[in-house]
Amino acid sequence: MRSLLEELYHGNLCPDEKVISSDPDYRQISRKTSEAIEAWKKRHSEEEFEELEALLDLYAQTHGMELASSFTYGFRLGAGIMVEVLTRKD
């Protein structure tokens, strides 16, 4: 198995593709979301549903940006903690 640095170099580390919530409510809420979208689709016109899809796409884009920022912040925080631990700075 390659080291994490080798995996990073070769582009094999994609945390956004591999992370799945371990929260016990995740699947239930995800299912409810899908059901609500389907119900919305049935109750509204195709044009209105396309507007909803466009809105959801915009939300997905901003959510992805927030996740990337959170990941970056968490990584930097973890690296900073390791630097403090390894250099014994208080």
Rank of each mutant, 00 (worst) to 15 (best):
F75R: 06
K41E: 10
Y26A: 08
L67N: 07
H63N: 02
Q61M: 13
I81V: 15
V83Q: 08
T33N: 13
G64T: 02
E48A: 05
G11V: 05
T72I: 07
E84Q: 13
L56Y: 01
P24F: 07
L55M: 13
L58M: 10
E46L: 08
E53Y: 04
S21R: 00
G78V: 06
R2Q: 12
E7S: 13
F49M: 11
F71I: 07
K42S: 12
G80I: 03
G80R: 00
R31T: 15
E35R: 14
A68C: 03
L52P: 08
V83F: 06
G80S: 00
E35D: 13
F75V: 03
L55T: 14
D16M: 02
S30N: 14
A68V: 08
Y59P: 00
A79I: 03
E6I: 11
L77Y: 10
E38P: 10
G80M: 04
G11N: 02
M1D: 11
E47V: 09
K18H: 00
L13E: 09
F49R: 09
K18P: 01
L67R: 04
E7W: 11
E47N: 11
V85W: 10
S34T: 13
R76Q: 02
R43C: 03
L13R: 09
E7P: 10
T87C: 05
L56A: 00
L4T: 04
C14W: 08
K42H: 07
D16I: 04
K89V: 09
Q28S: 02
I29C: 10
E46I: 08
I81E: 07
S34F: 08
V85T: 13
P15H: 00
L13W: 06
S30T: 11
L58D: 12
S3I: 00
E84C: 11
S3K: 06
T62R: 02
S69N: 09
E46Q: 12
G80P: 01
A68D: 04
K42D: 10
L86I: 12
E48W: 04
Q61A: 01
L58K: 13
H44Q: 04
K32A: 15
E53H: 06
G74Y: 01
Q61Y: 10
L4F: 14
S22R: 07
D57F: 07
R43D: 11
T72H: 01
G64D: 00
F71Q: 04
T33R: 09
L5M: 15
L67V: 07
T33G: 10
E17R: 00
V19K: 04
S70P: 04
Q61S: 07
R76V: 04
S45A: 01
L13T: 06
K89E: 15
I29F: 09
L55A: 11
I20E: 03
I37G: 07
T87R: 12
L77P: 00
A36M: 07
K32E: 13
